[in-house]
Design a binder for these strands. Structure first.
Length: 872
RNA sequence: GGACGCAUAGCUCAGCUGGUUAGAGCGCUCGCUUCACACGCGAGAGGUCAGGGGUUCGAGUCCCUUUGUGUCCACCA
């Protein structure tokens, strides 16, 4: 026995101690045990950019609930933890920190920069792991991985080489999204569109060998410097005679063709489009179709390059001003109109993306996407909720090649070596100094690193040791469930799926459990600029991790966004305290008695009642957990614990603990139910449940590895206890009707219960004295007592001699109202029971219920009527 | 333009494959220092489940439609 439980639960005193207790016991380290079924979850590795936010807290909580439940259900449950190097995001953070010291990447050089990055990783990686522990995450820390560790890097090289050899990775000059701020290419998925106010510049181009002009409009006049054609729709009557002719590009004087392409919309603008293949993805496609020259005019710093003639070296905004000015001067600018349009921006830094032609590495997606679609269609991977499959299909079916090279330093350096002699590329798993084509030693590794998602795509198997054939991999892979937010289905989930199929010939996971995003109390997205982010550690500090976990997982629709609310946290903090005090009550009462693990045979009705309810609860909660309906499970646990166990059973039990009648059985039941509640609740509220468990008589060394309760048919008792509850409730209600009766609780009365079920009530008198303010309780088939307050319920008629306190007029009205209500309900029931189709088609139990209901309503009505008459 | 959500008590939201009288938390009203807990106990008030139509013996739940609202994808040269 441990020290006395304090009056209020203090999570701060408990949580770290309990977590260390778990660590010491090695309870979270999963064994490759052939006698057990494996259940694996890999964590979506948090970025090492900073600290965990509330969204992580949600994600980790859900995973922890699932994995703890599985661990307690006899699985060899493994939750693989780890962190993500997050190349672009981390590199930006490190650069930002360096700037404060007056340093820059260029000054430092690659090697020194990477040294700093690793120091950063150590610091922030560790702090993230610490935060996960604070949340209660039951990860197997021995298996902690990092996307840039040696094993994951080997996996990345293996995949790169395999795909390259298969022709699925290629290097080429393509139009890519260039972030001028991050100074790197980014993938299509990393471009976000934001609505912006801009201008629409109407410009005229002179038609060559003609006096006429053609008018077009653009939002980016500076790109005119790279125009190599002007396009119209092939069926546009206005321009039929111009197709095939040329125009003279203003300011530059270059002669460029007028081409016809159905991409052009006749009804938008003037129906004429300037074509800049180097700086617009669509123009690039058109350029390919029409064999147009490509003139790159923007360099990697987003400045005009030497192809821009006199505009060279100008930044883009400056170039725009200059070009517009010159156009105006030369009379080519017709008008400027305001326009609201969507502008592609870097999803990390929100800088406007400049599409430009650049030599990059790509993954050919079509051959990878096809099986990835098939696997999901065949049900080998299931999305929960199912609707997210559509989003996945849509993206996969319209996928374009994936630009994977980044002009960054923090990441997996591309394992390709360029030969300065023969110009060919050697792609290899291991570092090499020799060109595989011409054996020259004059080679140099590619400067670029890989998209950070390239390594996260391999996470479910690379984190288990792939490409080595490890025991972990053969036992724990494929993993079972992936838990993540819908915001990274494209970035991550989809890429894990096609990667796993390609490289392991298997699914990465069987189920994808998708949750929503957390919003602030006003329903806004959390963001740095709004400063409305919530630090989970602060919540844990003030309310405890259990309260936070419950607040995040409760009352949440599947896949829906969640509005964070302190009210919810507070409610669950209070719930924790409720459990704490129930346990405290039990401990005070059992003192040092030995309590048997097994239930005694001679239980009282109320004992059987609560055990039976618990048994049903086990069944339902388990089903809910299997279906990922965590919120429903919590609602049931909350209701059972608070309402059924604390408010009713403990109150019933007090009577026997006080008067000594079968007190032993009451204590056994209290301990038994309490311990089992702790088990059911443990996945949700691990800290407090473990703490209480060890303070109660127990055999198992830790709750966290104890066996989850199972539904038992043998425990199924009838539940007549509820008849008594109903009567108690209505007595309380009538006494509480202050406006009419004004009965103080201290005023106790005799209670007469007239019922056909006398046997069910005999022996339960104490319940009414204790819980319904009774002095003496009389139970019989009938009574004839004048001047009493009468309460009619379905099973009984209760007389309370409140004498002069009763307002007879009000009481009659009350009964009349009750009668009307009963009659209306009876009518509904009768209508149904007289309906042949209902009788023919409705299931038996529904008919039975309604029919029983009808009978008791009839009884109640006749009693009410005679009662009302007596008031006349 | 396409797809997908959401609309249920004053507020924030649950409500699983359709089945008695629709729930929770907070808030509100009334009463209570009842020997586990005021982070508590007891009793209440409050909902034509956005509108309309349909399927069904039966609809908050399924279908169609309207309105409002949100998100994602595509796209605006």
């Amino acid at each position: 026995m441990k020290k006395d439980l304090a009056k209020t639960y203090d999570p701060k005193e408990v949580e770290d101690r309990i977590y260390n207790f778990w660590l010491k016991g090695e309870y979270f380290s999963a064994k490759t045990d052939e006698n057990k079924t494996p259940y694996t979850i890999v964590i979506p590795p948090p970025n090492i950019t900073g600290k965990l936010h509330i969204g992580h807290a949600l994600d980790e909580t859900l995973q922890d609930i699932i994995i703890r439940h599985k661990r307690m259900s006899g699985y060899s449950a493994l939750w693989v933890p780890g962190t993500d190097h997050a190349s672009i995001a981390t590199e930006a953070k490190i650069e930002e920190a360096m700037r404060k010291e007056g340093l820059s990447k260029e000054k430092l050089g690659r090697e020194e920069f990477l040294k700093r990055a690793w120091i950063w990783k150590e610091k922030y990686g560790k702090s993230i792991i610490d935060q996960l522990k604070k949340l209660g995450a039951s990860c197997d820390w021995h298996r902690t991985r990092f996307t840039l560790d040696e094993g994951c890097s080997a996996a990345v090289r293996e995949v790169f080489v395999k795909l390259f050899e298969k022709g699925l990775i290629y290097r080429g000059e393509r139009i890519i999204n260039w972030c001028p701020n991050c100074k790197t290419s980014i993938s299509d998925a990393e471009v976000a569109f934001y609505e912006k106010e801009g201008k629409f510049w109407h410009i005229r181009y002179k038609i060559a060998n003609d006096n006429g002009f053609i008018e077009l409009a653009t939002t980016r006049p500076e790109t005119l410097l790279g125009d190599t054609a002007v396009a119209v729709h092939p069926e546009d009557e206005r321009y039929q005679n111009l197709i095939g002719k040329s125009v003279i590009l203003p300011l530059i004087g270059r002669k460029i063709p007028i081409i016809a392409d159905s991409y052009v919309e006749k009804d938008f603008g003037t129906g004429v489009v300037k074509i800049t293949p180097a700086h617009d993805p669509h123009d690039f496609e058109i350029g390919l179709r029409h064999n147009l020259p490509i003139i790159n005019i923007i360099d990697e710093k987003a400045k005009i390059n030497e192809n821009g003639g006199k505009y060279a070296n100008l930044t883009l905004p400056a170039a725009r001003d200059a070009v517009v000015n010159d156009l105006k001067k030369e009379g080519h600018l017709i008008k400027i109109e305001p326009i609201v349009h969507n502008v592609g921006s870097c999803y990390r830094c929100k800088t406007v993306i400049e599409p430009r032609i650049s030599k990059q590495w790509f993954v050919k997606m079509k051959p990878l996407a096809e099986p990835a679609i098939e696997y999901v269609k065949a049900g080998k991977i299931k999305f929960v909720p199912e609707r997210f499959e559509k989003i996945y299909y849509h993206w996969m079916e319209n996928i374009k090649d994936w630009c994977i090279s980044r002009q960054l330093w923090w990441g997996h350096r591309i394992p390709a070596f360029h030969c300065r002699d023969c110009g060919k590329i050697t792609v290899t798993r291991d570092k090499t100094t020799i060109c595989s084509h011409c054996k020259s030693l004059n080679i140099k590794q590619d400067e670029d690193t890989l998209d950070t998602w390239f390594s996260s795509a391999l996470w479910p198997f690379s984190s288990l040791g792939w490409p080595e054939k490890t025991r972990d991999l053969s036992y724990f892979y494929p993993t079972h469930t992936l838990v993540t937010g819908y915001d990274i289905i494209f970035f991550w989930v989809a890429r894990m799926i096609f990667s796993a199929i390609e490289h392991t010939n298997n699914v990465p996971f069987k189920t994808v459990f998708i949750h929503g995003l957390i919003r602030d109390e006003q329903g806004r997205k959390m963001s740095k600029s709004l400063g409305n982010g919530i630090d989970p550690l602060e919540i844990i500090e003030s309310y405890g991790a259990d309260a936070l976990r419950m607040a995040l997982a409760t009352n949440v629709g599947p896949g829906n966004d969640i509005r964070f609310s302190y009210d919810k946290v507070l409610a669950n903090r209070n719930f924790a305290n409720k459990i704490w005090n129930a346990a405290r009550f039990i401990r005070i009462n059992i003192e040092n008695e030995i309590i048997e693990e097994d239930l005694p045979t001679n239980l009282m009705l109320e004992d059987k009642w609560i055990i039976n309810l618990f048994n049903t609860l086990v069944k339902e909660v388990t089903e809910n957990l299997e279906k990922f309906e965590l919120g429903l499970a919590i609602a049931k646990l909350y209701d059972f614990t608070w309402d059924k166990f604390c408010d009713w059973y403990i109150e019933f039990a007090k009577i026997r603990l006080n008067n000594g009648t079968s007190a032993k059985e009451a204590k056994c039941t209290l301990v038994w139910v309490m311990k089992n509640i702790l088990k059911l609740l443990h996945p949700f509220m691990p800290f407090i449940t473990e703490e209480i468990y060890t303070s109660l008589p127990h055999k198992e060394e830790a709750l966290t590895i104890s066996r989850y309760p199972e539904f038992s048919k043998e425990l199924f008792y009838e539940k007549d206890q509820e008849k008594i509850e109903k009567i108690i409730e209505i007595i309380r209600a009538i006494r509480n009707r202050r406006a009419e009766l004004n009965v103080a609780p201290s005023k106790k009365t005799k209670i007469y219960i007239a019922t056909d079920f006398t046997n069910d009530f005999k022996g339960c008198e104490a319940f009414f004295t204790k819980l319904a303010y009774g002095t003496e309780i009389f139970i019989d088939k009938d009574f004839n007592i004048p001047e009493t307050l009468t309460i009619i319920s379905t099973n009984a008629k209760v007389y309370i001699p409140l004498g002069e306190l009763v307002d007879r007029q009000a009481e009659r009205q009350r009964l009349q109202k009750q009668l009307e209500k009963c009659e209306a309900q009876l009518m509904q029931a009768e209508n149904k029971l007289e309906n042949d189709e209902f009788l023919a088609k409705a299931p038996k139990h529904v008919i039975e219920k309604i029919s029983n209901n009808k009978n008791s309503l009839c009884l109640q009505i006749s009693r009410l009527k005679s009662e009302i008459d007596s008031f006349l």
